[in-house]
Write a protein that binds this DNA or RNA. Structure first.
Lengths: 198, 198
DNA sequence: AAATAAATTGAACATTCATTCAATTTATAT
DNA sequence: ATATAAATTGAATGAATGTTCAATTTATTT
């Protein structure tokens, strides 16, 4: 009896629009009223589904981090070959996901994490899971004796340090050519660490 | 005739208070009114010295980036010895400056740079100057034949990639011990790149 | 002491904000 | 058809926002 709940559908719609507006105008300039206007719904409807803006923000962060995981698409599965590993490195150091994923917002909430423990914990979980997944891939390739990397976990961590550090700098680089060259050289570093020749 | 201008003094006072409040409550929660209240002055006085909040924000970013440079304190001077280089690396990978410098705000404005070209340019300039200064130090030590690093610029860049990547991850790490261990290991990487034994 | 210019205040502005609550519309089950 | 419950609206709230402008205070020079 009564009406079918649209809760999850609507919530996702709202989050997606929040993401879209925040991507364009920045998180700090995105109000509930603005989101509602773009969606052509009443602001109070947003409050109805997310009790406070804080809740909405947390939902957006979850959404962004899920996408972050997805785009990197490091699958925790068995039967990883050297070729899989190679492709993963290629993916990590490519930037085709750039269009799907907004770095500005990622860093906005990363910065927020310094003041909000909850967010910090979320980020930590994601970063760790990526590192663990890569370490696992390396271990599997080791087991297959396709490569011979002494410390899979340490190596995976280091590759991500290079990756994060590279993007940290390159995000401020406007010269596309310089960008590409640098990224390529850091990718090679990663391959060296794995003893893989590209 | 007339009164002596307090412009620069007051501006700096305001910026410092802006920094202090933003550090505590976050940039997006820091209004002109709040700053004025803490300083026990009238909000319109702030507008008098900084015509818009945007201008005030830019001033704060300059202030933060100046401090950033200062704390790293890589001096572009002559007569750099291997010992100077060693100390610089130690400094970069230590985190005593943590108390002087707020990472949260640094990243907040870093994130803002994705939407604001002016800010992006500011950050790029700072990041490049640090890299160049380190490269210069390496070159000087090379010239003294105290070390033998093939590509000073590339090596300096890579050390900063490691540094930035390390802090990117470690900023989300709450375990102090794990934090210290990791940072130490990345410092060793830097020393290896320079062919220096710590 | 008078003139001058900058510092500072205080009141007012329109806008926007997140949030509230009651009223109404709409879809589904009986 | 009627009951029901969720979806959605709409009006209103008070607080906070950045910014304006005229008035006043204060320090310095002549």
């Amino acid at each position: 009896m009564g009406r079918k709940s649209l809760k999850e559908t609507r919530q996702l719609e709202i989050i997606k629009m929040f993401y879209k507006v925040a991507k364009k105008e920045g998180y700090e300039n995105t109000s509930i009223a603005k989101i509602a206007k773009v969606m052509d719904i009443n602001p109070s409807l947003i409050i109805h589904y997310f009790e406070t803006k804080e809740d909405l923000t947390y939902a957006l962060i979850d959404y962004i981090l899920d996408r972050y995981l997805l785009i990197y698409s490091i699958k925790s599965k068995d039967g990883i070959t050297k070729e899989d590993l190679k492709q993963t490195i290629e993916l990590l150091f490519s930037k085709k996901w750039n269009t799907l994923f907004d770095d500005g917002l990622f860093y906005t909430f990363y910065a927020l994490a310094f003041r909000e423990k909850k967010i910090k914990a979320k980020y930590k979980t994601i970063l760790d899971s990526l590192r663990l997944a890569l370490a696992d891939m390396i271990s599997q390739c080791n087991a297959r004796q396709e490569i011979k990397v002494p410390a899979p976990k340490t190596t995976a961590d280091f590759i991500f340090v290079i990756l994060d550090g590279a993007y940290f700098y390159l995000s401020m680089e406007t010269d596309k050519n310089a960008y590409a060259l640098r990224l390529e050289s850091y990718k090679q570093k990663a391959f060296e660490l794995l003893g893989i020749t590209a």
